[in-house]
Amino acid sequence: MAELLKVDDINVYYGAIHAIKGVSFHVDEGEIVTLIGANGAGKSTTLQTVSGLLRSKTGSITFDGQSIGGVPAHRLVERGLAQVPEGRRVFLQMTVEENLEMGAYTQPKANTPGSLERVYVQFPRLKERRRQIAGTLSGGEQQMLAMGRALMSKPKLLMLDEPSMGLAPILVEQIFQIIRDLHKAGTTILLVEQNAQMALSVANRAYVLETGKITLSGTGEELIHSDEVRKAYLGG
């Protein structure tokens, strides 16, 4: 299958802190790939470097056949890259529908009604609350909104940063069901999670990130059964 995203030897720094040390991975079209690792391993930093919010000092990032290293974040959305940031980061003072409209910022206005309809079919809860201020939504609803908002730009690659963070188990189940549905509908997904069990169960392939380096990779199936992963991330 065609390679959609290729990250090759990136190094990212916060001042003197060397957060990402020579990370390489790739995502093929139609895959769900997950990046798992403990808190502080560098998962968010990796995603933010791909989406253009942070810069790598070395290496290259290729998306959809073009080099995107150095392209500012706001120019990558129209190319088909969407990121749901850690902690959801919906616009709390805007209504649900306004949040979704912001997701369609780079799209022609004529497409908005159709995109809204698609998102509302996927997330009926958001349709019920379309006129409500996002700040009044529950955590699970905000996560759905953040995902729906990202889908409004019709991304080729959807990057999710810890979508299950802080949610009750039943909601985690629900979010992962949505991830499976989106994948089935043809969306390519790069999923970052601390919840390794759930992430590995939906992923085609996975990478383990430890203090800024990739230490393991394989299919989701392989890693679920790997001793190292079981010990470190799945509680034995």
Binding site: L53, A73, R89, F91, M94, M102, G103, Y105
Partner: peptide, 22 residues
């Protein structure tokens, strides 16, 4: 459209960037 972008930027600059807002 620009007005809404201004509100988005005022709330959260990085989130606004991820929407494609300059």
């Amino acid at each position: 459209k620009l007005g809404k972008a201004m509100r988005a930027v005022s709330e959260d600059k990085d989130a606004a960037r991820l929407m494609g807002i300059n």
